[in-house]
Simulated assay, not measured.
Amino acid sequence: MTATRPDRPLLVRTPGQAGDPVVLVHPGAIPVSHYRELAEGVDPLRGLVIVDLEQMPAYFEAALTRRVTTTIDEMAADVARALRELPVSGRNWVLAGWSFGGTICHALLGLLDEDELPQRVLVLDALAPVPEFTARDGELDPVQVLGWFAMYLAAKRGGTVDVPPERLHGREFEPALAEVLDAAVAGGALLPGTTTAGLRKVFTTYRDGLLRNNHLVLGHSPKWTDLPMVVLRPERGLVDRPGALGWDQVAESPKVLRCPGDHYTMLRDPAAIRCFAEISA
């Protein structure tokens, strides 16, 4: 299957002043428009610049062809070149990354010159590129992914998909998928009449994006950073484990803060946005 993307820029500037920006790395799955409220909540003297990774053809195509032809360091190098055109040299800017975007943020730090480095780094419910959070055999637990997929459906389609992770734990995949379908229809995220076969196709596409990211992490060797880092974790994130989601293994004493929402709604929840704005001010 051949994938194509419109000719769009890697960097998306949101309305705001031309001051020292907050640069946020977006890994895709949901549209850039999902950050509208976040952009409005950032200090207007800064403004938000979004790095849309899906505008990198090799990254975007890998999720559809299941053939990865790029690396995390190559992607970070492309981001570094784009940021130099802002520019970021000598500026008091902030670097942020949501989900897999946090891994690209971290790799980027090793490619910037001293005068180009951000004031601090903020990762939003991002798992560090360390063995603890990487599937070494290249496979992901489909039922665990289904819990993430339920959150994604609600964010992507609107409505709610009320399926707590504990209800899915230990279930066989097909009955669990059927429960997600019922909850999505009841919550208005899917139309009545949607079939499990149709939903399974959407799930497979979603999972393939995660497998691509996992493949990229398997081939990556993260470097240590001393830059100040904040890990912002929502009430319902990707994993239910205490701590810094592995970032303490690749960064000096990252600070962990909590905010409302789940992996996706944290980008739009007013209280979570206020928390992000305070950290990035």
Score class of each variant (00 low, 15 high):
2 T>C: 13
3 A>F: 06
7 D>H: 12
9 P>G: 10
12 V>E: 04
14 T>Y: 12
22 V>H: 02
23 V>E: 06
27 P>N: 08
27 P>I: 11
28 G>K: 04
32 V>E: 01
38 L>M: 14
43 D>Y: 01
52 D>A: 13
52 D>F: 06
53 L>G: 03
55 Q>M: 00
56 M>K: 04
59 Y>W: 09
59 Y>P: 04
60 F>P: 10
60 F>D: 13
61 E>C: 05
61 E>N: 01
62 A>S: 13
63 A>H: 02
65 T>H: 01
71 T>S: 09
74 E>A: 15
74 E>L: 15
78 D>K: 08
82 A>T: 05
82 A>D: 03
90 G>A: 10
91 R>C: 06
97 G>S: 01
99 S>C: 10
102 G>R: 02
106 H>D: 07
107 A>T: 07
111 L>N: 11
112 L>F: 06
112 L>A: 03
113 D>Q: 13
113 D>N: 11
116 E>I: 03
116 E>H: 01
116 E>C: 00
117 L>I: 14
120 R>F: 12
121 V>A: 11
122 L>W: 13
127 L>T: 06
128 A>P: 02
131 P>G: 03
133 F>L: 09
137 D>H: 00
138 G>P: 00
138 G>M: 06
148 W>T: 07
150 A>C: 09
150 A>T: 10
152 Y>V: 07
152 Y>E: 05
152 Y>P: 08
156 K>V: 13
160 T>C: 08
161 V>Q: 04
162 D>V: 12
164 P>F: 09
165 P>A: 06
166 E>D: 15
172 E>C: 08
172 E>A: 05
178 A>C: 07
178 A>R: 13
180 V>Q: 11
182 D>P: 11
183 A>P: 02
183 A>T: 02
184 A>V: 03
187 G>S: 12
190 L>T: 03
190 L>D: 02
192 P>G: 11
193 G>A: 10
195 T>K: 01
196 T>F: 13
200 R>W: 15
205 T>W: 12
206 Y>R: 01
207 R>F: 12
208 D>A: 01
209 G>N: 07
210 L>Q: 09
210 L>P: 05
214 N>F: 03
222 P>H: 05
227 L>R: 07
228 P>M: 03
235 E>N: 07
236 R>M: 03
237 G>T: 08
241 R>N: 09
241 R>Q: 14
243 G>C: 01
243 G>A: 04
253 S>I: 05
260 P>T: 00
262 D>I: 13
263 H>F: 11
263 H>A: 09
264 Y>R: 00
275 C>Q: 10
277 A>K: 09
277 A>H: 14
277 A>M: 15
278 E>I: 04
278 E>K: 09
278 E>P: 04
279 I>C: 11
